[in-house]
Amino acid sequence: MSAVISVKDLNKIYQGGFQALKNINLDIHAGEIFALLGPNGAGKTTLISIICGIVNPSSGTVLADGYDIVRDYREARTAIGLVPQELSTDAFETVWDTVSFSRGLFGKPRNDAHIEKVLKVLSLWDKRDNKIMMLSGGMKRRVMIAKALSHEPKILFLDEPTAGVDVELRREMWEMVRQLREQGVTIILTTHYIEEAEEMADRVGIIREGKIILVDDKARLMQKLGRKQLTVHLAEPLQSLPATLDDDALALSEDGYGLVYTYDANQETTGIAELLRALNAAGIEFKDLHSRQSSLEDIFVDLVHNGQPAPANASSAGEV
């Protein structure tokens, strides 16, 4: 696959000496949805800002759509649309005017049909004559997305696009992002909702303290680092594990009703059959079985905090 963005040995040292990016190397493939994950202050916005021309790099090079972002900034930036993390919009302009302004600013001739399409996709068409200050926060965010799409970019950066957006709208935005991908737009998004990355991304990059610590296919990442867990719900509580069942992979829940077995789903033999036979042999009756796979969140939390693959646990996907 060809790289539509290619970051080489990129460093950023802010005035005051803080190094926000440390030797970043990253290729984004054409047509993919790439999720950049990382805790607060990891350097996500800094990286995006450099690629988009808002922050000066300290050293290193970035090619966007094949063009150097400094030397051939016109060509590079023409290809890029940016929805920044901070909600900053004009107040007194109408939605229509501000989106049309963006198109002109990016050097494109007027095209009302395109603006109309973008506003309709983002459910802003009814609001086109409203002043921006009269819109809600979620609508303002959509206005910023409309501005980024107004000039038909090949590459779209979404820096936390769904922060402060309600659940239904978030689903709609995911749908929109997928449609854009189908039209061939490459999408790079940051998010604190791991669920979002899990749902949408083709590939995931994890950044911590200014360093990229991992880049991989989402599916492969989840398979490689994911663990499965089988919980056996017992009919009668156990005080302790019988000696015949003593195994590192097996744990008894506090109330004694749950037996939790952690295994690697990629292995030939998972050991589930043996476990169930052993339970029978020990005369332990069970009512129910349920298994779950560790989520991207589990993997993420572990990578960021421990640098270790995750064991599955009972937490559900949510905000990090």
């Binding site: 016109r74 590079a76 940016l82 901070e86 900053s88 004009d90 501005k147």
Partner: peptide, 14 residues
């Protein structure tokens, strides 16, 4: 001041 300058800075304008 308002932060909307991001757009001008990220635009392909000289």
């Amino acid at each position: 001041f308002s932060g909307t300058i991001y757009e001008v800075l990220s635009a392909p304008v000289s």
